[in-house]
Structure formats: structure tokens, C-alpha cells
Design a protein around this nucleic acid. Sequence first.
RNA 1: CGGGGUGUGGCGCAGUCCGGUUAGCGCACCGCGUUUGGGACGCGGGGGCCGCAGGUUCGAAUCCUGCCACCCCGACCA
Length: 488
Amino acid sequence: MAKTIATRAENYSQWYTDIIKRAKLAEHSAVRGSMVIRPYGFAVWENMRDQLDRMFKETGHVNAYFPLFIPKSFLSKEADHVEGFAKECAVVTHYRLKNNPDGSGLMVDPEAKLEEELIVRPTSETIIWNTYRDWIKSYRDLPLLINQWANVVRWEMRTRLFLRTAEFLWQEGHTAHATREEAIAEAERMHEVYAQFAEKYMAMPVIRGTKSESERFAGALETYTIEALMQDGKALQAGTSHFLGQNFAKAFEVKFSNEENQEEYVWATSWGVSTRLMGALIMTHSDDDGLIIPPRLAPIQVVIVPIPKPTDELTRAAREIMDQLRSRNISVEYDNDDKSRVGFKFAEHELRGIPVRIGLGMRDLNQNQVEVARRDTKEKFFVPLDTLAETIENLLEEIQDNLYQKALDFRVQHTTYVDTMEEFESVIETRGGFVYAHWDGSKETEEEIKNRTKATIRCIPLDAPEEKGVDLISGKPSNRRVVFAKAY
RNA sequence: CGGGGUGUGGCGCAGUCCGGUUAGCGCACCGCGUUUGGGACGCGGGGGCCGCAGGUUCGAAUCCUGCCACCCCGACCA
């Protein structure tokens, strides 16, 4: 089959969709805006999930599960929170169907109307804080460090595979603390966990920062974010961690007695990442030949292709190699399909983003070597059998590092510092990427820039140095630059 | 919610304007043979209520009416 992936230059969003479909990561379902995550895509997500879960547990968190349905009244208890989510909620109003009188299928039974409508959770702060009220009585009950792996629903106007679907999988951490300082420290800690995960496992460099007020999570006092840059020059918010202050504690009357036996409201955080990370992964590394998965998240790290077809002798040699690799915790697959030809297989495995391919044929085997090909650079070289496992192990690390470095280089090349609105507009229009500019902190400037260029403040970077400057619009003084970009 | 588009074997499409024998093509699939170190080829084969519901007509994938779904572009958002 000929290539059926659009190139990035030709049509970036088509390229993105093609990769997801052709690599069998996911597809559109019969339900508007909802996708089917296919086994291979889910395997990548599972790797992400498992690693994140380890990191959460290492930082003292435990998992629990809260209901999918939230009573409508809960949602309205925190004013900013309703405001943020009300427009995109799926609502359950009835609990029964019956046959149509005319026999043409089913209808909602009007008799079965719910007393109080239920919202399909868009996020779980409300139901969780309603529960925490009963769990938290004393300072001894704190901190409460709980995470939930769940699906949530947000009725989005427009959806895109992985990046924005009506239903998506995610994790949401919800913690409760005795003091403001402790809660802030928690939000910052989890922010850093996300950043580490993105950089070390996804090989995706991120900017750590806080959100401007208008971009903040509904109900949060501070939102910490990690922002990544995609290959089309657009930014993607990859994970957020929120300091919620006492907003939810007050809304749900969650109080505890401190050591002096005084009642206080509890301090809260919440933090989450979603299957959107899959989209980030795809758009950070992949190329016109298909998907590229960093070794640490690849469900299959190495594929062995017998050349030209599997034979007993080649299969035996492959088994030996597999044993060696597996003993080093490397996941390996043997392509024993005897119908397809090697060229086809090579292209297929590249499309699937498998980091390393071993070509196993008699010509090389007779010289005690195999051909090793790396997906990231497409380089091929011969490796003697007796050092193969070690070489592959090192190569996987090298690929992981190279992917990160490549993404970082890309980001550096697509990061611009500007001091005038003219420069700003021209950079956003032509090169895209992250644009560092001075901002006076006002909503007006933010709004004006958004209207004129579609670019928004992605974050106020944590590591921004103090620097005198002036706001691009108002000309008022500013003490540091913030990061702008067009975003997904 | 506004604009555009598309619904025809698993996938991608042609046919629709101008109604007329068994609805075609490529890929995929099944069988046989030849091939085999970068997406093979030949021969044979299976698979379709033409998105749904009405209507017009001797006759509808094609014309008319209504509905539904999905995709793309905008405003909203993780």
C-alpha cells in the first residue's frame, strides 16, 4: 500500500489524524465527539498511567473512586466553578425507557423523571468535597492525599481525537491540608511531578509556570501549568495543578479542629492530566513516516523482523535474542507474519513508532550479526550478536535522550523575545511558537492581544528573571516577561 | 451556535447535474501459483436493504420533502 499519511507541511491536522488512525491508536466512534481508544493506543496510555501512578504513590498519595454522577445542586455551590463548567455538562434527567406507543423503538418514559437531575461529572471537586466533609474532623485527619483515575465528560462544541473529546480519561488528585502553605507546597509538588513525567518519560520539554487570572481553573486561586510546544508552533497545556484555597471547603462546609481546638476551613488542591497527553506525545515526536514513541512509553520497544520470511532457524535465533532482551526488561515482539514482505513490515513498524527494529536474516546471521535500525533517526547499522542486548539497552536510552533534545531544540528555535506589538504580530503570524513579552498584568492587554492575534498567555514562567520592560499594549511598566502562544 | 462539506461492501472513492439492463473502481479480505535484504505480481473468489423515513414515477443511489449522523473551519474549552 502506498503512503496514506498526509505530510506535516501539507496539512498538519490531517497528518495528526492520519497517524492516529493508521497507527491504530484510536478512531471516531458512533457517538459524537467520543472516540474509541484501540488496543495499541490504550497500551501507550496504560504506560503513562502506570508511571504516573507510581509517581503519585511515591509522593504519598492513594487511589479511590467517586461517583460518575453529581447532583445538580452540588455544582452550584462554588460560584466560579459553576460558571466554568455549566455550559458543557451532560445531564441525566430520567431513569427509564419504554416502547413507543406506535411500536417504533424506544422513548424516554416521562413518568421516570428524576427528582433532582444528575450531572455526568466534568470534574469531581464537588462530589469529593462533599464527601471530605465527613472524613475530615481533626488536624489529625490531614493531609488527605487522594487520587482518582476516571472518565469525565465535557460537552465540547468541537472535538479532536485525544486533544479534546466529549468523554476523556484522566486522573484527578484532590488533597486537603491544614494550612495554606502546605496546600501550596502540594500544588507545586504535583506540578513538578507532571513536569518530570513529561520530560523524563514523554521526552517532551515543558515550560513550568502559573496561569494568568483569566486562564485559571474555575474555582482556583492559583493554577500551575506545564506548557509544551507542538511541531506546528502551537502550544498545548499538558497538565495543571491548582491551589484552591478554602473555596471548596467553604462551599461544602469542610472544617477541622486544629491543635488549639479551634475550627478552621480546610485548604485544598486538585491536579490532573488526561488522555490529551497522548495527543501531546504524537505531536511532539512523530514525523511524516508515522508515529514515534519514546522508548520509556513504547508498548513494544523492539521488533524483530525475520528476513525475508520466518524460518525455523531464524525463529530460533529470534527467541534467543528475545530472551536476552527480556531479561533486561526490554519489551520485544517477533514479527512472524509469513505473508507480508519485509519492505511492507519495515514501513508498518515505522508507522507504529516502534523505537528499534532488528533485521534478522541469514546473510548477517552467518557473520554473527544483525541489522539494527532506530526509528528516530532512521539510521541502520550492524551489531554483533554477542553485544546485542547491551547495545539495544543503551540505544533505547540514547533514543529517549535524542527525542527530548530534538524537541528541546525545536522549542528553542521557536521561542522569540519581542518588545513591540508589530514584532509580536509578525512572529505569531509567521513562525508561531512561544513568544516572550512584557505584560503589565492587566486583563485588558491580555484580551486585546487575544483579539488581535489569537495568541493567549500560556503562563507566567516560574523561572522568569526579573527584567524591566513595558507592556506591549498599555506601555505600562512590567517586571518580567510572560509566555504567549496560540494554543490548542 | 454560525459557515462549509460528506453519508454508496471493512477503508478510500466514482456514479447523482441529465432516473433506465446484473451499482463500478482502488486498497483490504479469502484461495492457488510465482516472488521475497525497503510498501511484490498474476489468476480466481466472497462481500452492498446506495445514512433513515416518506413521496413522485412503469422504473429512484440518481428527482422532491423531512429527519439523522459524522467531518472540517470559526466562537467556547483540559
